[in-house]
Amino acid sequence: MSTDRLAVRKTYKLYVNGAFPRSESGRIYEVTDAKGAFLANAAWASRKDARDAVVAARAASAKWSGATAYNRGQVLYRVAEVMEGRHAQFCDEVAAGEGLSSSKARAAVDAAIDRWVWYAGWTDKLGAVLGGSNPVAGPYFDFSVPEPTGVVAILAPQRSSLLGLVSVLAPVLAGGSTAVVVTSKARPLPAVTLGEVLATSDVPGGVVNVLTGDAGEIGPWLAEHDDVDGIDLTGAPAGQAMELERLAAGGIKRVVRPPAEEPDWSADPGLSRLTPFLETKTVWHPMGL
């Protein structure tokens, strides 16, 4: 292979409302590989970027939550398809950022793609598995259905930059909510690339908004934002989770608390990340001639 060609490097930007802006603050920070070598400058998202992202997520909510489960499932499967085509790029970024061997990086990327497939298949089963009819003691037809919570802020895991990210993001989308994600601070590059995948995967703009930067800085604004309905604190900085949960209490937000330590994301995800951002609606109607 010829080595005299100078590579074209990528500018890593935010992904907000289907576009790739720089941070309005003009701030960037240096991202290095696991050994400390320079990889790229990432956009350092600000409070204003976070608010723009929430506006975009709210605007996208009606269409995404109103899409048929069949359609949502296909869109999520499409994400897996497009990721597959960028497999090598994800492997390089994960290996560099997380300091993994190429085989371990490949395993993480494989699992991340397969996770989209798993959640893609859930969209049109949730109603049957989590809802149903209720045999009330009276002449009524009474049924319960799961519905999306709305706009969910996600503080993505700090260590697992792609598999961890997909593991917290895909279930929110599968359930029909839209998302504002704050990426791993030190390892943000796979998240930006995932944004590029989402932009070309039939996921409507605004459904996922990716902010690279510091969860400790942006987290409080998202936790107390009145137009955010739920928050996943998985990647919250140690020692800050309690403060964030307290802020979220103001708006009675749905909160997923951070685990004591970052879990093994390769484990079977089950339903535990789908249900926190689903609401159960129960509808009654009388029966009569």
Binding site: T282, V283, W284
Partner: peptide, 24 residues
């Protein structure tokens, strides 16, 4: 809203999930 009563109101039953959306 977590509970929607159509052509009825304030019906309750132990088999029927009850609870709120948003700040309810």
């Amino acid at each position: 809203a977590g509970v929607v009563w159509a052509n009825c109101f304030n019906e309750f039953d132990p088999t029927s999930p009850f609870g709120g959306y948003k700040q309810s």
